[in-house]
């Protein structure tokens, strides 16, 4: 009994001494029309630069996209790449997400903070500038009709995460958590080798909906209470139905999408908006998908969760399976 005492003390002491944390780099900054934050075991200056460079091309209110929206052609590599990737997602999942909706977005003042309800004529006018048949890709050139304005708001944050993923892979980064607003990348393996834990906020602002435990992945969300705005005394979703030109009417209040591997960022971002707009009537095909996983909450406080995802709902959140 007494003899085993000494090694016990020593090992206990060694465990505590070993608690000294590895160096973790962190950074917060504003880009892509949102707050970005990076946490990693390697120097994050380059990661930050990746996001800022992407922002310089894709931000609707500055830089290359603003220029392109006034003309017909661009050879900007970012605009080409994100357009090409969005088009292939559209061919798989349909046109709920419409990147030609820039005119409509500006009209509603979404993301510029200026919230007014436009007139019917104005909405009709902007709808006439939209449609995937109005953009063309050829030999590194994106072309469109002059009046058509591109808006990558539904895919750019996830796309930025893809660029970060590529960069971190090249640099043999072991671990990183990168958020670009509503899209994030959980990269590599945590220092303690446990799964990543993702908590999903409650759309009503109370106890969270629950916790997802997962390996490395991309995660994007849509919905949520902060994404509504008031105008003329009414509450509107900030996500527009690009078919009607009005804020979307959906019975979904929160969507979380997990995608895995290369190009999972833009895919999760796209799907989060797509599923939100589609409503619960279009959920079944998403719930049974093998290559991405979802957690959805609807207006009736019901949760929908993909098979094969490790999700623990919290008691007392007001939402249940």
């Amino acid at each position: 009994m007494k003899k085993s005492f000494i090694p016990l003390i020593i090992s206990t002491v060694m465990i505590f001494s070993g608690c000294q944390k590895n160096k973790i780099y962190t950074s917060d900054f504003f880009a892509m029309d949102t707050l970005c934050s990076i946490k990693s075991d390697i120097d994050i200056k380059e990661t930050e630069a990746v996001i800022l460079t992407c922002n310089a091309s894709l931000d609707m209110y500055s830089g290359e996209l603003l220029k392109f929206n006034e003309i017909e052609e661009t050879d900007n590599a970012y605009i080409y790449d994100i357009t090409e990737k969005t088009l292939s997602l559209v061919s798989l999942y349909g046109e709920n997400v419409d990147i030609t909706s820039g005119e409509l977005t500006s009209l509603w003042g979404i993301s510029s903070g200026n919230k007014t309800v436009p007139s019917e004529d104005e909405i009709k006018n902007s709808l006439s500038t939209m449609g995937y048949e109005k953009i063309f890709l050829k030999d590194g050139i994106v072309s469109k009709e002059k009046e058509t304005k591109l808006d990558f708001g539904a895919v750019a944050k996830g796309y930025a995460c893809d660029l970060v993923y590529k960069n971190l892979s090249e640099k043999n980064c072991g671990y990183a958590i990168v958020s670009v607003g509503s899209s994030s990348l959980l990269f590599g393996e945590k220092p303690d080798k446990t799964d990543f834990k993702i908590e999903i906020k409650n759309p009503d602002g109370n106890i969270p909906l629950g916790m997802i435990e997962t390996k490395s992945c991309f995660v994007s969300t849509s919905g949520g209470y902060e994404r509504f705005f008031e105008a003329d005394g009414k509450t509107y979703s900030h996500i527009l139905d690009t078919k009607t030109g009005y804020p979307v009417k959906t019975d979904i209040v929160s969507v979380t999408v997990l995608c895995y591997g290369e190009n999972g960022g833009i895919k999760s971002d796209f799907l989060a908006t797509d599923i939100f707009i589609g409503g619960t009537e279009n959920l079944s095909k998403h719930l049974s998908s093998d290559d991405y996983k979802i957690v959805v909450a609807d207006k009736n406080k019901k949760l929908y969760v993909s098979e094969g995802i490790e999700f623990t709902p919290y008691e007392n959140s007001g939402y249940s399976l």
């Binding site: 917060d28 504003f30 029309d33 949102t34 707050l35 903070g113 958590i177 958020s179 509503s182 994030s184 959980l186 945590k190 990543f196 834990k197 993702i198 908590e199 999903i200 906020k201 409650n202 759309p203 969270p208 909906l209 916790m211 995660v219 969300t221 919905g223 949520g224 929160s254 979380t256």
Partner: peptide, 29 residues
């Protein structure tokens, strides 16, 4: 732990920092 408030126009953000060992790596939604 990890919850944020963001004011985009004013470039101000608030983040909760705690020692809570069981809390999430990231909060979404």
């Amino acid at each position: 732990n990890g919850e944020t408030i963001i004011c985009l126009p004013e470039k101000v953000s608030v983040r909760i920092i705690s020692d809570d060992k069981v809390s999430a790596d990231i909060i979404v939604g």
